[in-house]
Amino acid sequence: MKILTTIHDLNNLDKLIKVADGFIIGNKMFSKALTKSFDENINEVIKKIKDNEKLVFVLFNGLYTNQEIKLIKEYVKGLDLDLIDGFIGGDLGLIETFKSLNLNHKFVYNPETLLTNYVDFNYFKTDLIKGAFVSKEITLDDIYKIGLKKEYELFLYGHGHMSMFYSKRKIVSLFTDNDLNHNISNLTLKEDTRDELFPIYEDDLGTHVFRGEVLSSLNALDKLNEIADYLIVDTLFQSDEYALDIIPLYKNKVSKDEINKIKQKYNEVWHEGFLFEKSIIKEK
């Protein structure tokens, strides 16, 4: 299982390539929830990653109108396509876009919440995709069942603040009349009966709400190593230093003490999402 991560500062790439197998990068025009937007220099970044023999995936994780699909197509044409290992996208309309650019077997479908069983996961085989992300809201048992029957590469979010909500609406700006000068790290939602603060922020694609506590898949590693091809360590709301600390936990068997030291260092509460607790439909 390869570990992919995100980047905050290109100057840290030399250190990050020592722990990560690859990187997910994007441009804020087309990607949400980025740690950093790589704009004019994206081909430089791609080349630098590939010069270090690491994998590079470009992110298109929004949902797009026709006009935006056209812009993406033009944008992709300008990328150094031979060097890119994959394009991660959440909009099915992108499959046709990448096919039309002869980029078969490069698209990785990530609808975040929709691929919850092996039939749905494998449905896109004839569409010549490279792989797909399993849903973030299913159990390890369900992920494992998908993995045993997968017909292309299996990706999953393994560590980081889980995205819970994505709206095209600019909800915070509308509410605050733009007077809070909010940025990516300083606004949260607090619900009366819960202690957890949920980060909320806007970018070019809309409004996003995340878990305040951090998803950890460390207790699922044995099974994930058997069936997953890529595990993502997303460092949104953190730093490159965080990736340097976290990725080795997934690469090497480490003691609980070492894990606790890292949690304390970053003052984080970790949870295991739905890996070991199945969601319900309604209370009986």
Partner: peptide, 20 residues
Amino acid sequence: AGYSGRCSLSNHLTNRDANR
């Protein structure tokens, strides 16, 4: 309020699965 089918607020805050 968000894109239908892509929201897991209910899952995370109440354990109730919006997509089921």
